[in-house]
């Protein structure tokens, strides 16, 4: 294969020498790369360390002018007090419910629409697709005032469904599913259709079960987004239907602050997602790569 340099000159190919002559510089380079990586990784993990360390300390230890590396002894009472005295459990339950429903419905609705747009030839399909794409132009966070008006008119203020339902329709995911089904091997489907299966049976029986990869990638990302959402749950749910983020925020912006409990609350609010993240990282990476297409 003839490679061309950006300048337009065809480059003669003489393999080997490049990597060979690189070796001298390489040792020094590798040391520098790893030194930088270790320092940066420590910096990136520092906030986690500070959070967990402070969560297991007494207030007196946190505010001491001497830096304490480890809580000694760990104050597990902070956790018990937090669970007993605050609304965080309600917040956790609400957030879990919201996230699960949103992930399932968002993924299913997007897959259904994406499949229809990719595979069912009807008149006006391109028009529908174009219509969906125009809604991608509108920055969602900015339309929260008018959307609040509609949800309020429907009686959704202060309810969980008011938080959930408007977030079930993800156009970008629809777009990605359409892309995915366009590349889906037609032969599999045609074999199914010869058996007399209609579009519904082809979709639910063949296409959907064969798209677990993309579903996991988009689902994992949407779980994170759902759990971490703040503005919309704050506006709609407020103090009547609190998510964990709203509970944490009201601690943080309260008049009086109990530092140790706040850090413990942060740990409790973040822990479920950190665990999910570590377990599903492979899928999340795929999801992020897909998101890169958006630009």
């Amino acid at each position: 294969m003839a490679t061309t340099l950006p300048g337009g000159r065809p480059a003669p190919r003489r393999g080997g020498s490049y990597w060979g002559r690189l070796r001298g510089r390489r040792v020094l380079g590798t040391v520098a790369v790893y030194a930088a990586l270790i320092v940066l990784a420590a910096l990136f993990l520092l906030p986690f360390y500070v959070m967990v360390r402070s969560a297991l300390m007494t207030n007196r230890q946190i505010t001491a002018f001497e830096w304490l590396w480890l809580p000694n002894p760990p104050q597990w009472d902070n956790l018990r007090e937090l669970l007993d005295e605050s609304d965080i459990l309600i917040g956790l339950r609400n957030s879990a419910g919201i996230a699960i429903i949103q992930v399932v419905c968002q993924t299913l609705f997007a897959a259904m629409a994406g499949y229809a747009l990719a595979r069912i030839p009807v008149r006006g399909r391109d028009l529908v697709f174009f219509g969906l794409l125009t809604t991608l132009m509108i920055p969602s966070a900015v339309t929260f005032v008018p959307t609040y008006a509609v949800v309020s008119w429907l009686g959704g203020v202060g309810t969980l469904w008011g938080i959930i339902v408007p977030g079930l329709f993800n156009v970008f995911a629809t777009f990605l599913f359409r892309q995915f089904y366009l590349d889906f091997p037609v032969e599999i489907e045609e074999a199914g259709r010869l058996d007399g299966a209609g579009y519904f049976r082809t979709f639910f029986g063949l296409a959907l079960p064969n798209s677990y990869g993309i579903m996991a990638a988009l689902g994992a990302l949407s779980f994170i987004g759902s759990w971490n959402a703040f503005l919309w749950p704050l506006v709609i749910g407020g103090q009547d239907a609190k998510t964990v983020q709203v509970v944490l925020s009201s601690f943080l912006t309260a008049q009086t602050i109990d530092l140790a409990q706040l850090f413990m609350a942060a740990v409790v609010g973040a822990a479920p997602l950190v665990i999910i993240f570590l377990v599903l990282q492979r899928y999340i990476v795929e999801g992020v790569k897909l998101s890169g297409i958006k630009g």
Binding site: L37, L40, A41, F44, L45, L46, P47, F48, V50, M51, S54, I62, T63, A64, F65, I224, W227, N228, F230, Q245, L248, S249, F251, L252, I257, L259, L262, F263, A266, G269, A270, L273, V274, I276, F277, L278, Q281, I284, V285, V288
Partner: peptide
């Protein structure tokens, strides 16, 4: 290393704000 840099993606702005405001960039001497 990839995980170390990527894992903050799992954290919410609320939690991070809390850690930044009261832990890392607390205006008091501690």
């Amino acid at each position: 290393f990839r995980t170390a840099f990527f894992i903050p993606t799992a954290i919410s702005y609320v939690v991070a704000s809390l850690v930044w405001k009261l832990g890392l960039f607390n205006s008091l001497p501690y």
